[in-house]
Design a protein around this nucleic acid. Structure first.
Lengths: 142, 142
DNA sequence: CTCGGATATTTAGAGCTTGAATGTTTCTAG
DNA sequence: CTAGAAACATTCAAGCTCTAAATATCCGAG
């Protein structure tokens, strides 16, 4: 009796594999577009999330990473003259990140590239909506 | 005219965020269980995929990583006495990976832990099935 | 058989990410 | 007001992953 370890378990593992696979495709999509602009994926993600002035911590949260990682990535962007670390107007502990003119221009180009050929283009708007609902439920209830 | 950059684009970006979020939760789930056994997430993934004797390349494919990374991870597992690199019976270029008795025992414990409290438990079997179909379609058509 | 292109693995080097420890500054309970 | 706790940012060490290049072996065309 070699009961194949609970069918449900196996199905869930396969599903995890699919989620990871799609996440990797999305990451690859970003990586390609970033490379076209001379950026790494991490740098592109940071630039994408720079919707306006924000602190290091806010950027880290938007990037879903640790603040120490944001420090690392912003260092690179600053060396390229895309971002500036200014003193925060009301909190002397914090830095306020600002895009330079060059940074804002590159960000616009990046957003344009990222909008093309989305990895989710294989799904209809209705399917995307269904997917969104399922993902939200999976993330919340766990 | 500051057209808010195409509503569809924005929805797709949000969806990408959700996919990444769920993937991170899955990874965190593995990381926790791995840590309980003194393994890193990468080591646990390798152990989980060792369903039987296989080459380095096969393992790398199952882990969705580069062969050079598999070398790195198997090095660690070998140092812990969980895996052995044996000469491949028919191809002298390749190594055949075998679990030691200790490795097989630890793998059993790992599989048990990973089966508990799946990050996808918030979805009904039917919802999981729907999700699987959508993910497969998204991955294939891109 | 032998040469040349493919394949399996490893190594070296670099980038990304994390967690712990640190220095500053802010907030808050008393 | 003031001490202690909490928050912001950074630095450092360690681990993961990738690419490119090196080595060894296989396989097929001639």
């Amino acid at each position: 009796m070699t009961t194949p370890p609970e069918p449900q378990t196996s199905a869930e593992r396969q599903l995890c594999g699919l989620v990871n696979g799609l996440a990797q495709q999305i990451a690859e999509h970003v990586r390609e577009r970033a490379a076209a602009l001379g950026l790494t994926a991490a740098q592109a993600t940071a630039l994408r999330e720079m919707t306006g002035p924000m602190t290091m911590r806010e950027l880290a949260e938007r990037m879903s990473c640790e603040p120490s990682n944001a420090t690392f990535v912003v260092d690179k962007l600053e060396k390229q003259g895309l971002v500036e670390r200014c003193p925060h107007p009301t909190d002397r502990r914090a830095k306020q990140l600002l895009l330079t003119a060059e940074g804002a221009a590159l960000r616009d180009r990046l957003l344009g590239l990222l909008a093309q050929d989305s990895p989710l283009a294989g799904l209809s708007p209705q399917q995307q909506s269904t997917l969104q609902g399922l993902l939200e439920q999976a993330i919340t209830r766990s």
